[in-house]
Amino acid sequence: MSAIIIFTSVSIAQVILMIAMAISSVRMFYGPRAQDRIIGLDALYVNAMLLLVTFGIGTGRTVYFEAALVIGLLGFVSSVSLAKFLMRGEVIE
């Protein structure tokens, strides 16, 4: 019984997070300006991280947690460096 409940909710959560990722990547491709694209990338990696954690619950392995932690770390660094580039790289000061 509990296995069915967890399996169903994990599948639904995975589909929902996939849709959220798809929507974020739409904004990333069409976002009118560069800052919208960067926020789209940020939302995309956060949702991908959440998706990995739900994979971990679904399969019962803790390996996915480490992958999620690495995505969180690298995603933060990439968004910050892109934001820095936007501030200093394009407009000559």
Binding site: M1, S2, A3, I5, I6, T8, S9, V10, I12, A13, I16, L17, I19, A20, M21, I23, S24, R27, I39, G40, A43, V46, N47, L50, T54, I57
Partner: peptide
């Protein structure tokens, strides 16, 4: 079973908030 229900609730709650965030985005 009660723990499974709680886990399912928190999972769906978090996933739905992520979806609403993406829609608002």
């Amino acid at each position: 079973v009660w723990a499974a229900a709680a886990i399912a609730f928190f999972l769906l709650f978090g996933a739905l908030l992520a979806l609403i965030g993406a829609i608002g985005f």
